[in-house]
C-alpha cells in the first residue's frame, strides 16, 4: 500500500463520523462535569496504546480543516513521537501544523504544558496513560468510581501525608493530583507538578484522552484547578539552581543534558518553541507576565537560594 492510497481510503482525520460523534458526546459530558472521567468506546488506532491513542482520538474528533495543529512530547516539537503524530494528522486531516504555541488552535501534548500562556479559543489535548488518580491506591475500577461518586478522597490525603512524614516532602513530582472545580480529584497526566499552576483558571479548553483505559475528561476554560496540599505544607513547584544554557530563562522547566562521562551537564528549556523564541528575541511580553503570576514559584526560588 502506498502512502497516498492509505490516506485517501480513510475518512477525514482517520476516524469515521459515527465514532467522532460518540467521542464528541463524551467530550460534551466531560466539559459539563469538569474533572469527571467519562467512559468512551475508544477505538484501536494505527499507533500503539501508550503512544497517545487517547489524545489522537480527541484531536481527530475536534480538529477541522481550518485548524492549526501543534504536537509536543516532553515539551518539544521535534521528539520522535511528536513528529510521528504530527505527520499522521498532516496525512489524514490535511491540516496546517506549527511549532509556535501562539499560532496553534489545537495543541496535542504529552507530559508538558507549554510555557507560553494559552489563550481563549485554543484547545490543549493531553495524552493520558492512567486517568485514574486513585489507581495506585486502589486498583479496582469499581472501587475508585465509588470513591469519586462519594467524594471520598481521604486515601489520597493519607498518601500525601505519609510522604511528608517519611520524606519531609510530598514525594510526587509528576502526575500530581489536582482538584477540579472543587469537586473531582483528577490526574493531570504525567506532566511535572511544575505545570500544575498553568491549569488553574486557564483560558484554553483542556481535554484529556486515555485511549487504552477508554476515558475522557476535561477542564473547561477558566476553571479552578487546585493542587492537593496541606495548610502547613503548601503545594510548591520545582526550581533549578541554573538558568537555561541556551536562552537564559530562569523560570521555565529545564531538561538536564549530560555532556560527558565526567559528570558535566547543562540545563536547557524542555519547551523547545519557548526556548527558540527567547533566543530569537521574539517572545511575546505576555509570557513574562504570566510567569510572574505563578507566585508559588517565587517562594520556591527564594527558598532554594537560601
Amino acid at each position: 500500500m502506498s502512502q497516498s492510497t492509505t490516506a485517501s481510503s480513510y475518512n477525514y482525520a482517520y476516524l469515521d463520523e459515527q465514532t467522532k460523534r460518540m467521542i464528541r458526546r463524551a467530550l460534551l459530558k466531560a466539559v459539563a462535569i469538569p474533572g469527571y472521567q467519562v467512559p468512551f468506546a475508544g477505538r484501536e488506532m494505527p499507533m500503539p496504546y501508550g503512544w497517545g491513542t487517547g489524545g489522537v482520538q480527541v484531536t481527530a474528533t475536534v480538529i477541522g480543516p481550518s485548524d492549526t495543529l501543534k504536537v509536543i512530547d516532553q515539551g518539544s516539537d521535534d521528539t520522535t513521537n511528536a513528529v510521528s503524530i504530527r505527520q499522521f494528522f498532516e496525512k489524514t486531516a490535511d491540516i496546517d501544523t506549527t511549532e509556535k504555541t501562539k499560532d496553534a488552535t489545537v495543541i496535542q501534548t504529552r507530559h508538558r504544558i507549554p510555557e507560553e500562556t494559552l489563550t481563549e479559543g485554543q484547545i490543549l489535548v493531553y495524552q493520558v496513560p492512567i486517568p485514574e488518580p486513585l489507581r495506585f491506591l486502589e486498583p479496582r475500577e469499581t472501587e475508585t468510581r465509588k470513591m469519586h461518586a462519594l467524594e471520598e478522597y481521604g486515601l489520597m490525603h493519607v498518601k500525601l501525608y505519609e510522604d511528608i512524614s517519611r520524606h519531609g516532602h510530598i514525594a510526587t513530582t509528576y502526575a500530581y493530583p489536582v482538584k477540579v472545580n472543587g469537586r473531582y480529584v483528577m490526574d493531570p497526566s504525567p506532566t511535572p507538578k511544575f505545570d500544575n499552576p498553568k491549569m488553574d483558571n486557564c483560558a484554553a479548553l483542556q481535554l484529556f484522552g486515555a485511549g487504552r483505559e477508554k476515558r475522557i475528561y476535561a477542564i473547561p476554560p477558566y476553571t479552578k484547578v487546585q493542587s492537593l496540599d496541606f495548610e502547613d505544607h503548601p503545594f510548591e513547584i520545582q526550581s533549578w539552581d541554573q538558568d537555561c544554557a541556551l536562552c537564559g530563562s530562569t523560570d521555565s522547566f529545564l531538561d538536564e543534558v549530560i555532556l560527558d562521562d565526567k559528570g558535566n551537564r547543562m540545563f536547557v528549556c524542555s519547551d523547545s518553541d519557548y526556548c527558540q523564541s527567547r533566543q530569537d528575541g521574539s517572545m511575546p511580553s505576555s509570557v513574562e507576565h504570566t510567569l510572574s503570576q505563578a507566585s508559588q514559584m517565587q517562594s520556591v526560588n527564594s527558598e532554594a537560594s537560601k
Binding site: 500503539p48 503512544w51 504525567p190 511535572p192 487504552r212 522547566f253 531538561d255
Partner: peptide
C-alpha cells in the same frame, strides 16, 4: 495483548521530563 504490549513498550518512549522531576527530588532528599 494489544493494550498490554502498547503500554508495556511505551516506557521506551522519552520520559525526560518526568525523570528530571524525579532526579531533582532525589537529589534534594
Amino acid at each position: 495483548n494489544i493494550q498490554a504490549t502498547g503500554f508495556v513498550e511505551h516506557i521506551k518512549l522519552p520520559h525526560y521530563v518526568d525523570f528530571q522531576a524525579e532526579l531533582g527530588l532525589v537529589r534534594r532528599m
